[in-house]
């Protein structure tokens, strides 16, 4: 009895799914038209997936295969299993690069996104010349990363740099910004921040403008201060966009390359003791300065893992923003 009752609705539910498919066989049965309907969609997406196979899937899979080999410029590749990974675990230079990358990333991203939020909040006010201000904060984006790195490296110059000159007015001795971990990290982080804060602010601003204004009006009538409204309305409503920017910043930050390279006149070592060598620089140093292809591929896979972990951690952190009620 009970069995009968259960099967009844299930059969019913299946039926409507089938009907349109039969109808979709096409009222006109001409072969070219059928071919067009069935096959052309695949032709349209085929250029992308062809490129994806050659320049996406193949490099990723082959990176893994290469990472299992001792593969140098001279001589053949030799399968060595997980040797490269074992070597990597005790490679102080690699871990140094990981620490630098994560350190610079945190130092750059946290202030950047907080500043971007504040900036977006300011841009969202009623103000004359809105387009001027929006374009103004986006100007850094249209300079190239290399240009930013070159200009900031000069500004951070030890003897003639403007930043040391300004600090000197306050009685601070000239700093050799490249020489220490903390100073080089700060210098590189400011390059990243200068270029990307405005971009993130514009993204947040876009999100803020989709928040219905009556929410704020209602909150004002209830006596909530602007600050409280920011925390209780703006931030929770922006959460998906914040997750998006955190995500983009994580990938960008963990693959940081041009800024630290140009901060050191184009060299890959990141200073005399590698104080600002990032993982991406380490890959290039191993693979294309020392021609240890296998080992470079191993580092590349670790970079991927690092990004994966970074994205997950940040995702869970960002999900909590404004989530506590």
């Amino acid at each position: 009895m009970s069995l009968h009752v259960e099967t009844g609705p299930r059969a019913d539910a299946r039926a409507p799914g089938r009907r349109p498919r039969q109808g979709g066989r096409g009222p006109r049965g001409r072969l070219p038209a059928m071919f067009d309907l069935r096959v052309t969609p695949y032709l349209l997406i085929s250029p992308y997936f062809l490129l994806f196979a050659v320049f996406g899937l193949f490099p990723l899979a082959f990176t893994f295969w290469t990472s299992l080999q001792k593969y140098e410029l001279a001589g053949d590749a030799e399968f060595t299993g997980l040797d490269n990974y074992v070597k990597l675990m005790s490679d102080g230079d690699f871990w140094n690069a990981v620490v630098n990358t994560v350190g610079i990333f945190v130092l750059a991203t946290v202030p950047q996104l907080v500043l971007a939020l504040l900036l977006a909040n300011a841009l969202n006010k009623r103000i004359r010349g809105r387009l001027f201000f929006r374009m103004g904060v986006l100007i850094p984006l249209v300079t190239s990363i290399v240009a930013v790195a070159v200009v900031f490296t000069q500004l951070y110059g030890r003897d003639y740099g403007m930043i040391n000159w300004i600090l000197g007015l306050f009685g601070v001795d000239n700093i050799a910004w490249q020489n220490e971990k903390w100073s080089s990290w700060i210098a590189i982080a400011t390059m990243v921040d200068w270029r990307w804060t405005g971009y993130n602010a514009i993204i947040y601003l876009a999100g803020m403008q989709t928040i219905p204004r009556d929410l704020y009006e209602a909150a004002s009538i209830d006596g909530a201060s602007p600050r409280r409204q920011f925390w209780q309305i703006t931030l929770p409503m922006l959460r998906p966009i914040i997750v998006f920017t955190v995500f983009v910043s994580t990938i960008g930050g963990l693959t940081l390359f041009a800024e630290p390279v140009l901060f050191n006149n184009g060299r890959m070592d990141g200073g005399s003791t590698g104080q600002f060598q990032t993982v991406a620089m380490y890959i290039v140093e191993q693979g294309f300065r020392r021609f240890e292809y296998g080992y470079a591929a191993t580092v590349a896979w670790m970079l991927f893992l690092l990004i994966l972990v970074g994205v997950l951690i940040n995702y869970f952190l960002a999900r909590r923003i404004g989530g506590a009620k």
């Binding site: 082959f62 990938i251 991406a280 470079a296």
Partner: peptide
């Protein structure tokens, strides 16, 4: 499925990660 695969691969910085095989290619 295909659209989903594009979204997932958007998260992989292929041009940085795959430098070694790309170079060999």
């Amino acid at each position: 499925l295909l659209l989903g695969s594009i979204l997932i691969t958007m998260m992989v910085p292929i041009q940085q990660m795959g430098v070694v095989p790309l170079y060999q290619l």
